[in-house]
Computed example of a mutant assay.
Amino acid sequence: MSIYNFSAVAMNGQATSLQEFQGKVVLIVNTAGRCGFTYQYEDLQRLYDRYKDKGFVILGFPCNQFDHQEPDSNETIQTNCLLNYGVNFPLFQKINVRDKGAHPLFEYLSNSKAFEGFNPFHPVAKILLPLIKEKHPEYLLDDYSIKWNFTKFLIDTNGNVIKRFECTTDPVDMEQDIENLLESVTI
């Protein structure tokens, strides 16, 4: 099994097989436009711009499950991402990433790599950790589910999950891992 076994609906309403990204290094991210980590869109776009011609792609999946931080329509999400952050990597329509109704892709991703904890020294973690413990302690009861927006999964050229990065890992801190995987890409 790999990510190539799954498909999702792109922002334009077209079903897209992830097999379309075969042979590329892929970063899959669940996103939200009103989150303390929304600033990561800018760094994700920088990574995409830097490596897209070397066989790298980012796939964004908006989700409204975490404190209702992505309430907008798909059209508004796409417009806001473009106008506010310059996002031009592929975005998909809003989905659920945990619990009942979770998209099968995210069930696969989250079960592939365990949650290893948040970086408690990240500036936003000082807000996030008390919020989760107070409002959503059930999020921390298992080792695999998605815990918050901007959880990132790095996928190799064969569609295998290589690494999981939580929201408290900024995109620039993943650059070496991306470069290491890109060494095997032939364009």
Rank of each mutant, 00 (worst) to 15 (best):
L140M: 14
P62V: 01
R34P: 00
Y51C: 09
T151H: 09
L47D: 02
L83C: 06
K126C: 02
F106D: 03
Y85L: 07
R46K: 15
Q69E: 12
P137R: 08
E107P: 00
K133A: 14
N111E: 14
K100Q: 12
H122R: 06
S145I: 03
N96M: 10
E20P: 00
K100D: 11
P123K: 07
L109K: 08
Y108G: 02
F115W: 10
N160F: 11
P62S: 06
Q69L: 12
G55W: 04
P120I: 15
Q78P: 00
I58G: 00
E75M: 08
P90R: 03
L128Q: 09
K126Q: 13
L82Q: 15
N158F: 13
P123W: 01
V29R: 12
N84V: 04
I77L: 13
L105K: 08
V26F: 03
Q45D: 07
E20T: 15
C35H: 01
E20D: 13
I132L: 13
S145A: 10
C63S: 13
P123G: 01
V97T: 01
T76S: 12
T31Y: 01
V25Q: 03
D142R: 12
F153K: 06
D43K: 11
F56G: 00
K94H: 11
Q93V: 02
G117N: 11
I132C: 06
V26P: 04
K52P: 08
D99P: 01
E116D: 12
K54V: 06
E138G: 04
E20Q: 14
D49I: 15
N158V: 13
N84T: 06
N119E: 10
